[in-house]
Amino acid sequence: MKNILNFIKSQKLLVVFIVIFLASSFTTKYFFSFTNIINLLTQVSTYGIVAIGMTFIVITGEFDISVGSVMALSGVVVVSLINSYGLAVAMLALIAIGFIVGLINSLLVIKVKINSFIATLGGMIFYRGIAFLITKDGTPVLPKVEYYNKISTGTLFNIPFLVYIFFIIVIISEFILKKTTFGRNIYSTGCNYEVAKFAGVNVVFYKTAAFIICSTGAALAGLLMSSRLNTAAPIAADDAALSALSAVVLGGTSLSGGTGNALKTLVGLMILGLIVNALNMVGISSYIQLAIKGTLLILFVSIERYFQNRAQAVSS
């Protein structure tokens, strides 16, 4: 019994999630249907991958708000290349995009010492610009190969590949962050850059790695999104950075770095996704939905912080 209580105390957000989940299942019949659950998971998966990548960078105490543009750019590039050169070249390009963007971001942040918000903001504008240039007049690129659409939407046991990919990424990320020296050094770097440096942690390497992981995640998400929608538009995913960041912070990862993990982000994501999904199901007008969404966001953060403060007051 005490264990259960402790669990509830430590995992308030998860509990919140379960409560909304159950509440939604009671209010609408369709909610708790297999199709709808899968639908929900599919909806959160692309931005979910971005959010997991974002978790790494937020743990190091930085932001990356160029992710949306990287998604758009990678979608456009991959689809264009796949049309003319095939999958292998396209995948290489995807990795190259993730790697180069991450490298540029980290260079600007670490070496040139620009605030990561601005460095990646510049990138955000720049990469989207390139995506526009590639598509000439901004019209979406359509994949000409059949299988492209299947990468995301193909199913195994009636569950789309996309969902599998997302969950595999979550599990791997959680493992890396918790159980490897690589992951732990990412935390050290974010907790206090100077202290970690004095302890001999190669802070430059880990920060760079986090930026690369984040932008590669975004590039992959760009591919998966264009595959799911079967089109790649340069205007796509303009709200990705903010959504991902919200999920990360809602999950309880502090923007000042050094805390958080992938599972927390997953919970944050699911709550955000669930709210949208449940509100849609109940059939509330979109404006009121918006209001409810905002209110819930405020409520969750407040409740979480309130309990955290109380717990701290007791323990210290």
Partner: peptide, 26 residues
């Protein structure tokens, strides 16, 4: 009142952004 951190203020005002946007639309 919740002793919010800087990160909290980001999310809370972002939530507020959404709510006020909704009010304006309504």
């Amino acid at each position: 009142s919740i002793n919010g951190t800087q990160g909290d203020s980001f999310i809370i005002t972002f939530g507020m952004l959404t709510v006020i946007q909704a009010v304006a639309l309504i």
